[in-house]
Design a protein around this nucleic acid. Sequence first.
DNA 1: AAAAAAATAATAACTTTTCCTATTTTTTAC
DNA 2: GTAAAAAATAGGAAAAGTTATTATTTTTTT
Lengths: 133, 133
Amino acid sequence: MEHLKILMVTRNTLQESLVFEAVNELRNHATADEIYELIVKKYPGISKGTVYRNLNKLDRQNRIHKLEMPDGADRFDHCCHEHYHIKCGKCGRVFDVDMDAIEDLRQRIKATHGFEFTGYDIIFKGFCPECNK
Amino acid sequence: MEHLKILMVTRNTLQESLVFEAVNELRNHATADEIYELIVKKYPGISKGTVYRNLNKLDRQNRIHKLEMPDGADRFDHCCHEHYHIKCGKCGRVFDVDMDAIEDLRQRIKATHGFEFTGYDIIFKGFCPECNK
DNA sequence: AAAAAAATAATAACTTTTCCTATTTTTTAC
DNA sequence: GTAAAAAATAGGAAAAGTTATTATTTTTTT
């Protein structure tokens, strides 16, 4: 009998590398479409389905972070320290919000609801200084 | 010269009332489609565009609350006390999370980012007790 | 009563994402 | 090393959710 494979086996394809590099090159909370547009310049054969598949795979592997936006296309971010986001209601740009983690969130929910959560995103809405002029 | 009208003038139509009542009747974080389906039983002539238009109008008037979900259709809630939401990753249902407001959020952001926000939604992800069995 | 404004029904269009299918590439089994 | 199996791909269709368009109806203003 063979030993069990616990790890999900995924292949490292050229397309996956291109997607990973594009996210890390843009560093701009890019949408899947923006990432696709960057890659297609160098590698015209790539398809959007492949970009989406690899973005989601990389997110599952915690190699990039998928930020699900409530009012439009999801954004993809390189992995770094924990932070939150604020989206400008006028120009639509997404900015990082460096802030200490809200430490007791998990305990609050558990105490008041008996419900454990696996994750959360907080996206603030406002107007960036430029649009607020 | 006439006096200025500051308030936005909107008409109170039958359709608007039906939408408002449906949201308050369902009380279930209903989607626009679910609200449409409820109304169309009693008033078959209504169109989806009208439902969407009135839902957004009622949200702007703060008569209902539009909860923008990151991974699917927006939900519409009757207005009540401030609370947060948790969405089950399996059955997709949305539950209320009663919890003291995170009071110092606005100050945190201002202090670390110099950025005032106009709003935010926190949506937790997890598995509801039923799906967690 | 006539003109202007707002809301509507119906449908087209749009955006974002997933799904499907045939093909190609990579891995596994022998 | 070769054949069979599995995974990933390109391209395009399809799905989901929402907004925009247009002609018509309803309401308001004058």
